[in-house]
């Protein structure tokens, strides 16, 4: 009985150490991916291809979701604010919630599902089919050739996607609020402009989305690189990418919000 407890403790310790080890490994991995000098020609072309895969191909899902979320915000905001006769603040409500919160967070979640999982699966498959090993044997560091362009593409794309999401969302709010529900356009825009500050709201939202971009892409490429090279391993790694990045985004969002807007 006593031995059993000790065994369990040892097991717990082992698995704890395992987690710490995997965190350390992924940290080193991030460092190498960021600071690896890409010493070969044509890395611009590699980055462009990844920007296309990661950014451009996410454009449609991000803008369509942004439009719908903006429209819902407009509708909900109107139905609540009309009771207090301050439907002029709908613009403010839509803009602030999109720019500060929903833009970065929802974009990051969509990004994890659309681009992150694809990155993990692609890299995992490259590992399973020995493409990474053969690259190493040819004398090319896969961290430079495969990981770094994907990582940077993710980091660059995320803030741009978040900005597009927020803007399209606000347009959705305008369509619902101004065109359909007949809020006076002037008060809609002026209320928005008075309450939204460029540095504090738009700027902080962008900082958030940049942080989320780093975290989601990091998780995605590392899970792919670290995947067990079998079909089951890759599917598990893909699931882990989506789960871990969603949790990380939501958790980090709370921390960042507390730091950025908490004092007010």
């Amino acid at each position: 009985m006593k031995l059993d407890v000790l065994d369990r403790l040892a097991q717990l310790g082992q698995s704890g150490l395992g987690h710490v080890q995997s965190l350390g490994r992924s940290g080193i991995f991030l460092f190498l991916a960021i600071f690896s000098r890409a010493g070969f020609s044509g890395r611009g072309a590699l980055l462009i291809r990844q920007l296309y895969n990661v950014g451009f191909l996410s454009l449609i899902i991000v803008s369509v979701s942004g439009l719908f979320i903006g429209m819902v915000l407009g509708l909900q905001g109107y139905s609540i604010l009309i009771r207090y006769g301050s439907e002029g603040s709908v613009g403010q409500l839509v803009a602030l919630s999109l720019v500060r919160e929903l833009g970065p967070v929802v974009t990051a979640l969509l990004f994890a599902g659309r681009a992150g999982s694809a990155l993990t699966a692609e890299i995992g498959l490259m590992k399973a089919t020995e493409q990474l090993s053969s690259m190493e044997m040819i004398g090319v560091d896969p961290l430079k050739r495969v990981i770094a362009p994907r990582f940077w593409a993710g980091v660059i794309s995320m803030p741009l996607l978040a900005a597009i999401f927020s803007l399209v969302g606000i347009l959705g709010g305008v369509i619902v609020g101004v065109d359909w529900l007949g809020i006076y356009e002037g008060s809609f825009w002026s209320g928005m402009q008075q309450s939204v500050d460029f540095v504090d709201d738009v700027g902080n939202g962008m900082v958030k989305s940049l942080v989320f971009g780093v975290v989601v892409t990091w998780i995605a490429v590392f899970q792919g690189y670290d995947a067990v090279p079998t079909s089951e391993g890759i599917s598990r790694a893909t699931t882990r990418t989506v789960v871990y990045s969603s949790l990380a985004v939501l958790g980090l969002d709370f921390i960042l919000t507390a730091v950025m807007f908490g004092e007010l």
């Binding site: 498959l125 490259m126 089919t129 020995e130 493409q131 090993s133 053969s134």
Partner: peptide, 9 residues
């Protein structure tokens, strides 16, 4: 020469 060929897809 890898078992699967390992061509870059």
């Amino acid at each position: 020469l890898f078992q699967s060929g390992a061509l870059f897809t």
